[in-house]
Simulated scan of single mutants.
Amino acid sequence: MNKKMLLLVLLCSVSFFALQAQYNFVVQNGSASVYNTLQEAYDNTSAGDTIYLPGGSFNFPSVDKPLVWIGVGYHPDSTAATYFTRINNPVNFSGNCDNTYLTGMHFMSNVTFGTSGQDVTDVTIFRCRISGSLTLKYNNTVEVLLNDKVSECIIDGSIDAGMGSNVIIEKTILKGTLGHFRNSYMNHNIFTYGARNSGSGYSFLLSYCENCQVKNSVINYYSYVNWRADVYGSINNNFLNNIFAGNITFPDGTNTGSYNITGVDLSTVFENIDGNFQDFSYLHNFHLKAGSPAAAAGMNGADIGIYGHTVPFKDGGLPVTPHIRSVEVNDETTNGLLPVSVSVGAQEN
């Protein structure tokens, strides 16, 4: 990132909290332009442009073109100097949004890709939190090659691929069901839900999924008599080197599994779980505690869970852009100017 772009990104993050003025949104398309509203910034983009969002609370526009969206982060502690980038409304990306890239934002509601008859492909969602459900494909009647990737995210709801294939879910903390995936790959995740909803309802890890591989993950799903909480309506999926809270057995129909560890008390796995394991908390510590059964139990001797990947989950969830560590604003002006001191740290990955 060049110096001019870095300065504009800093203005984005500092403007509201430091200067108590209007927000600034930067659009980068070779040169950089600054706008006062997100809608105005979006209206002035072309396909492939990048929008930098500051910390603050916003509504997304209706999105009908492929863009790169970069917020300042979702984690409250990591964004103390700027506030996190919060998206308040449900967001829909139309079928014209192939190659969309999202990072550094907390979506407070559902995120949906595609419209009737037009799917979105090649989507990347990196270091975001979604406090709703994620729908990667508009309907589930036809199998489509999606080529999507969800990495280092926190998903508080379910993910439905709509019979989409070649989707990667990695290093992600998910409460909810993976539905209608085809030929997809789930690696080094934590699945926190415990199978049963209130009353007589049930929830499942995989629902109507086919030919998927789940490996190196911690799975809180367990079974009741005559119910299989790991799979429902799913065939030909393979579970490798996972830890299950329940006493899961394979084969389960045409679903297979090898080198899984079952019946595990998850309190023996992680450093700290603050309260209810099923509901995400920033006070949870998903690093493995000493003697954890997940240590070196993954494929090729890797640790199971979000930190066992060769490029592990990054604490704090910051996007790969310079990070504002602190902002100091002088109470008095000097020569008519308001002195502002900003401390910035580079991000290696």
Rank of each mutant, 00 (worst) to 15 (best):
Q213M: 01
S94Y: 02
G275N: 10
V218M: 11
N89H: 07
R182P: 04
N216S: 11
D303Q: 04
D49F: 09
G336M: 08
Y202M: 12
I125T: 05
A229C: 12
H287Y: 15
L102E: 04
T192L: 06
N241G: 03
T135V: 10
K314W: 01
N300V: 05
T262S: 14
S267P: 03
S258H: 06
F280T: 07
L146K: 03
N139S: 15
G164Y: 06
L7R: 14
E152W: 04
S116R: 09
L136A: 12
R196F: 13
F58A: 10
C209A: 13
F239K: 03
N260T: 05
N166G: 00
V144M: 10
F17K: 15
T112D: 00
E210G: 02
F107K: 06
T254N: 13
F204R: 01
G117D: 10
T85M: 04
N92D: 01
N99S: 14
A297V: 05
F280M: 03
C97S: 14
Y307D: 12
N44H: 15
V214K: 02
M108W: 06
N211K: 14
Y222L: 13
F113A: 02
H75L: 02
P90T: 02
L283T: 08
V91Q: 01
E152T: 02
S341P: 00
V269D: 10
N189P: 10
S207V: 02
Y208G: 07
E40M: 07
V123N: 03
K65A: 09
D252H: 07
G253I: 14
D279Y: 15
K149P: 01
L7Y: 12
M5H: 06
F84E: 15
I248Y: 05
N272F: 15
V342R: 01
L8M: 12
G298N: 05
G48P: 02
S198V: 06
L240N: 07
H75S: 15
F204E: 02
I173S: 08
G301P: 09
N92Q: 11
L146Y: 04
L67W: 07
F313H: 15
A294R: 06
D252R: 10
P339I: 12
P66V: 04
F191W: 11
P319F: 11
M108V: 13
S203L: 02
L337Q: 15
V63A: 00
I304W: 06
K215W: 03
P54E: 08
P66D: 15
A302C: 07
A32D: 14
I168D: 14
N89I: 03
G263Y: 08
K65S: 07
N276Y: 10
K3Q: 08
A245D: 11
A290P: 01
D265G: 08
S217H: 11
G55S: 11
F17P: 00
Y101R: 10
K137E: 05
L318F: 07
V142E: 15
L145W: 03
F25A: 06
G233S: 14
G233H: 09
T192R: 15
N216M: 08
L338Q: 14
